[in-house]
């Protein structure tokens, strides 16, 4: 049960002069949902992005300390970022299907990694769409544009797209904040389903959601991981005064 998938060690991140993450040392368990909570600008999204090096995309970011996936430092020189992102997939806040067919969206990742065979791709597409509980809704229109789907369907399509490369970890950056309540329920159910196969890390501004879907919760404040632990204990008997204040709605 206490299989550690990702571990960070005194992780510090600077955007120019801003010290955005301060000495974050946490452990993320395999096949569990870990929720990252905290007020806006607390560093939870930034932390999430360090886990598959999406911060590399923005300039003038400096990182100190280590992030270890299965014990290996992902910031070590010579690490293939494409391979890393295959292992650590990501779903974004705004559903962002590509302007192509539903099928091509899901097949995008496998094609990036060199899979060309039609039979294999078709199998992957179906499995991924089933895995994201959207297969029944789209199976009749796989060749139609993905942009015609509803917001909730788009987000589940993006989850399917992320799953298609068979990642080990799924990072989700406020995946339901742009969705209506009914779609949110579906995505939340999906998260519980996903942890059977994957390690899921989800950023949420919604504490009820964290309580509903996660096994572990990390509370971030001003770049610090103030309190980490099982969701149940963090919400029922927080050890830190700041955690208590936050979950009781005193700020944020």
């Amino acid at each position: 049960m206490d299989d550690i998938k990702i571990r960070t060690d005194h992780l510090n991140l600077y955007y120019g002069r801003t010290h955005a993450l301060k000495n974050v040392s946490v452990k993320i368990r395999a096949q569990a949902v870990t929720a990252l909570i905290g007020p806006s600008g607390c560093g939870k999204s930034t932390f999430l992005k360090t886990l598959n090096r999406m911060n590399d995309l923005s300039g003038n970011v400096r990182i100190e300390g280590g992030v270890y996936l299965d014990g290996k430092d992902i910031y070590a020189p010579g690490v293939d970022v494409a391979k890393l992102r295959r292992k650590v997939g990501m779903v974004f806040q705004e559903p962002n299907p590509f302007p192509m067919s539903i099928y091509d969206n899901v097949a995008y990742g496998p094609r990036v990694h060199g899979i060309k065979d039609h039979g294999t791709l078709e199998k992957i597409v179906e499995e991924s769409l089933r895995g994201a509980s959207i297969w029944d809704e789209v199976k009749g229109r796989l060749r139609k544009s993905a942009l015609g789907l509803s917001g909730g369907q788009k987000q589940r399509l993006c989850i399917a797209r992320a799953m298609a490369v068979e990642p080990e970890v799924l990072l989700m950056d406020e995946p339901t904040s742009a969705l209506d309540p009914a779609s949110t329920v579906k995505v939340e159910e999906l998260m519980k389903e996903l942890k059977k196969k994957y390690t899921v890390v989800v950023v949420t501004h919604n504490m009820q959601q964290a309580a509903r879907v996660s096994d572990d919760t990390f509370f971030f404040l001003m770049g610090e991981a103030v309190e980490t632990g099982s969701t149940y204990s963090l919400f029922s008997k927080p050890r830190d005064r700041r955690t208590f204040d936050y979950i009781n709605g005193r700020f944020g």
Binding site: A82, F92, F98, G109, A162
Partner: peptide
Amino acid sequence: VPDSYRIGAAGMGAT
């Protein structure tokens, strides 16, 4: 072209 496409593709490991 929205940036979300660029970020999304990078997130899939595309060059």
